[in-house]
Amino acid sequence: MSRAEFEAAAAEAVAVLGPAQTKDLAGQLAEGRSREYILHAVRMRTAGPTVHRLLNAVDLAGIPAGEVAMYLRGFAAAWTRQRELTEVQPVWSGPPTPGVPVRSTAQVLVSVVGQATTEVLAMTYSAAAYKPLTAALRAAAERGVGVDIVVETIQGAGGLLTGPEPARAFSELAGFTTVRLWHWPLDQREERGARQHAKILVVDRQVLFLGSANLTASGARHNIEAGVLIRGGTAPARSAEHVRELQRRGVLRPLK
């Protein structure tokens, strides 16, 4: 494994752990703690696999523990600085307004997925195959990016959705082991009639697209839909963490 692969694993660990736990991890490595001790000390269950991958990368690259600790502290400092810089842009679908600087939903969906290096999380109410987005997701999966998509189901929508299951919009991605579809089972809904109505896209816990558009051609291009694209700050990571915790608790479950 190359040093570049180690650095990618370290960057992922910092994004998942956050600065405080990253500094704890760096201290444990500097003190020569064992793999078992470190993995046991990780307080976030969802971070365990990420730290495990990092430790494997360290072993394969043969990097001394002290040097790894310095890398992690440096990454944590840079990550903290990056999170302090937040950029928010308006995003719209539908008729353009020449001269007004807003980005289109269709452009944002494809370009943001195209930038993914580790993780794509998406949630949508309805979904229909939209070729540019499907192609971007396929390319991400081919790069080894983990893709998790939460959809509503016909049953869950209680008659408010018609036609094929929304999950069928992503059938072309079925052969990729890094792509997983999720749903909100009826037995996890406290109120009858509750819907999975969120529409978000989170990439690498650094970029968040939040808006009214479903993952359909109509939502991306034809309807008048509004949203915001957020780069930096805490919102992308917190949104991803919320979805991951819902998955861990079984509120969201794999769609089979």
Results as ranks from 00 to 15, higher is better:
residue 54 L to F: 13
residue 52 H to K: 15
residue 70 M to R: 15
residue 65 A to M: 09
residue 100 V to W: 03
residue 64 P to Q: 13
residue 57 A to G: 06
residue 89 Q to G: 05
residue 72 L to H: 05
residue 93 S to K: 14
residue 60 L to S: 15
residue 82 Q to I: 09
residue 79 W to L: 06
residue 103 R to W: 04
residue 87 E to P: 00
residue 96 P to D: 07
residue 66 G to W: 07
residue 87 E to S: 13
residue 49 P to M: 01
residue 62 G to Q: 05
residue 81 R to I: 12
residue 104 S to R: 15
residue 98 P to E: 12
residue 77 A to L: 06
residue 54 L to E: 00
residue 56 N to E: 12
residue 67 E to K: 08
residue 80 T to K: 10
residue 87 E to W: 10
residue 93 S to Q: 03
residue 93 S to P: 07
residue 74 G to C: 09
residue 57 A to S: 14
residue 63 I to N: 00
residue 80 T to S: 14
residue 80 T to Y: 02
residue 104 S to F: 10
residue 95 P to D: 09
residue 107 Q to M: 08
residue 75 F to T: 00
residue 89 Q to T: 08
residue 84 E to P: 01
residue 97 T to P: 01
residue 93 S to Y: 01
residue 64 P to T: 08
residue 117 T to Y: 07
residue 115 Q to E: 14
residue 93 S to F: 00
residue 103 R to L: 08
residue 110 V to A: 05
residue 67 E to T: 03
residue 56 N to I: 11
residue 65 A to D: 12
residue 61 A to G: 07
residue 79 W to Q: 10
residue 57 A to F: 11
residue 53 R to G: 04
residue 94 G to E: 05
residue 93 S to C: 11
residue 61 A to H: 14
residue 91 V to R: 07
residue 104 S to N: 01
residue 100 V to I: 07
residue 91 V to H: 11
residue 114 G to M: 00
residue 117 T to D: 05
residue 78 A to R: 14
residue 77 A to P: 02
residue 101 P to Y: 05
residue 71 Y to F: 15
residue 52 H to D: 09
residue 113 V to K: 09
residue 73 R to S: 12
residue 55 L to E: 06
residue 79 W to S: 13
residue 51 V to Q: 02
residue 72 L to C: 01
residue 108 V to Q: 11
residue 72 L to Q: 06
residue 50 T to G: 03
residue 86 T to L: 02
residue 109 L to G: 03
residue 108 V to P: 09
residue 82 Q to R: 15
residue 102 V to T: 15
residue 60 L to A: 08
residue 110 V to T: 13
